[in-house]
């Protein structure tokens, strides 16, 4: 995309496969994208398209089978413990399930105090208390009420806010949010998304927002990457991709988003099973050629019907 030095984190043609032939699954095939400070990249695709594999690659939970991960322009080496610790501090994750990602035996205060003590060692005594208070205020929770509570006393939205505060306590520069709102109630989703937007803007965080809900992707992200069968099929500026989708899979994905303007009885709204199969089959074929639609809008070449 743009010059690699400005990116905090870059994936350079990373592949990840599981198993051995003939049962090999290519979960990520030559995936490249970049995360920039103060920008959000949305990673969109259906279940099984490789979104979570990408998240795990970024978290260094998986080692790539091929390709490399660049952090601030340099490859992350596994033999340098200090560099690795710095990497793990800078890249933090927010999980989908707010109900299982906090320790039920500890208070919220403890959840934030631990990362502060471990990662910001120069803080002493009262300073830690002040930092916890500031973090909770930042995620719009009242420290006097929330700090002494246990996770079960909070709602899903509140817990997700605590998770966000926790990533900030560590001192994250990159946040990987894997479907952060899909288990929350509709009425609190926007609140959490707005909070992520604010964090990104005020603290110059780079955000990787993973979702299958393409409508919320537009709401938080500047750039978008559409994945299918381990390949990135279309990427670029979020408005350009959503308003002018070029790859057949992106078109299919967009046409299936619930649209109250169009009733199911309307013949135009009908998806034909055969067409859907065809798009899926063609999109799954590995392709190397990239076509530029615009300066900041690219698609991967679609396999021709006969060759596939």
């Amino acid at each position: 995309m743009s010059e690699p030095h400005s990116a905090i984190l870059a994936l350079d043609r990373i592949s990840k496969s599981f198993g051995r032939p003939p049962f090999q699954v290519n979960a990520a095939q030559s995936v490249s994208f970049e995360l920039h400070a103060g920008r959000t990249l949305a990673l969109v695709g259906e279940s099984g398209s490789g979104k979570t594999t990408c998240a795990r690659l970024v978290m260094r939970e998986y080692t790539p089978s091929d390709g490399q991960l660049l952090f601030k322009g340099k490859p992350v080496s596994t033999d340098n413990a200090k560099a690795l610790a710095a990497y793990r501090r800078s890249v933090q994750m927010i999980f989908q399930d707010p109900f299982s990602s906090l320790n039920p035996a500890h208070t919220i205060d403890y959840h934030l105090r631990r990362p502060l003590q471990l990662h910001q060692r120069d803080l002493r005594g009262k300073q830690v208390d002040a930092a916890i208070e500031e973090l909770l205020t930042r995620v719009k929770l009242d420290p006097r009420i929330v700090a002494q509570k246990h996770p079960h006393e909070l709602s899903g939205g509140q817990r997700q806010r605590v998770n966000i505060a926790r990533t900030l306590a560590v001192g994250a520069e990159v946040i990987v949010a894997d479907e952060p709102t899909s288990m929350l109630d509709v009425s609190v989703r926007l609140g959490v998304l707005n909070l992520l937007n604010e964090m990104k803007r005020d603290m110059k965080l780079a955000l990787l927002y993973i979702t299958h809900d393409i409508a919320t992707a537009r709401y938080v992200a500047e750039d978008i990457v559409v994945m299918y069968a381990g390949q990135i099929v279309e990427w670029g500026n979020v408005n350009k991709v959503i308003d002018n989708p070029q790859h057949p899979y992106t078109k299919l994905l967009l046409s299936a988003v619930p649209d109250p303007e169009m009733r199911f009885d309307d013949p135009k709204a009908q998806l034909k099973a055969a067409d859907v199969e065809e798009v899926r089959r063609l999109s799954a074929v590995p392709q190397d050629r990239v076509i530029a639609i615009d300066q900041d809008h690219f698609i991967r070449q679609v396999a021709s019907t006969r060759a596939a």
């Binding site: 509709v186 604010e198 803007r201 409508a215 919320t216 537009r218 709401y219 109250p260």
Partner: peptide, 30 residues
């Protein structure tokens, strides 16, 4: 969809970001 009467229905509609057109809440200028 077109003519919600109750305040709660309106609020429920407002909590969905729409795919096309303007986001319902004020968008942060970037």
């Amino acid at each position: 969809y077109g003519d919600p009467q109750h305040d709660y229905t309106k609020k429920l509609w407002a909590s969905f970001p729409s795919l096309h057109g303007e986001p319902v809440m004020e968008r942060v200028p970037t």
